[in-house]
């Protein structure tokens, strides 16, 4: 481990830093997400890349997962910070204070999954209409396909 990853690992010896398919991955509890992300930024992961959510439906650690991807341009190196959330209480601290670019991403996770980010300045729907009910990317929501409607069923189409 070199570079910003080593700095971060030194700072948080209690966290497990692993490698999955060549990606550096670290799991944190959700209460520490903002703290670890801020430390990652100081350690050298200057650029915010991505924040997304995954719905694992039936998983003992927690139904949802918030995934934060950061990159260090100097090194170059990537890191992925994962944080599990329980299905009954899908809230997580917002990291917009660390990276303002997480703003739209957290709104998207809220819109599609229903995960609420505490401390987000404007947590509203972003991709779906404002009056939409439900969170379509959750696994217990059907995909919403309709049976194909043939426009002129009584015409002879041969």
């Amino acid at each position: 481990m070199t570079g910003p990853l080593a700095v971060l690992a030194e700072r948080f010896p209690e966290l497990e830093f692993g490698t999955v398919h060549g990606d550096h991955v670290v799991r944190v509890e959700r209460e520490r997400l903002a703290e670890v992300t801020a430390a990652a930024r100081e350690a050298g992961f200057e650029m915010f890349v991505d924040l997304c959510a995954v719905d694992y439906l039936r998983r003992p650690e927690g139904r949802f997962e918030v995934v934060v991807n950061l990159v260090s341009i100097e090194e170059p190196q990537r890191i992925r910070i994962l944080s599990a959330l329980p299905g009954s209480d899908p809230t997580a601290p917002s990291i917009t204070g660390v990276y303002p670019g997480a703003n739209f991403y957290e709104r998207e996770a809220y819109d599609l999954f229903g995960i609420e980010f505490e401390g987000h300045p404007d947590l509203t729907r972003i991709l779906l209409p404002d009056d939409w009910v439900g969170h379509p990317l959750r696994k217990d929501t059907p995909v919403g396909s309709v049976p194909v409607q043939f426009k002129h069923p009584d015409e002879d189409t041969t």
């Binding site: 779906l128 379509p136 995909v143 919403g144 396909s145 309709v146 194909v148 409607q149």
Partner: peptide, 16 residues
Amino acid sequence: STGGMFNNYALVQGVD
């Protein structure tokens, strides 16, 4: 015309 390959919650299935 029909919603195309995206037969899901997000699209109007055909602009007609």
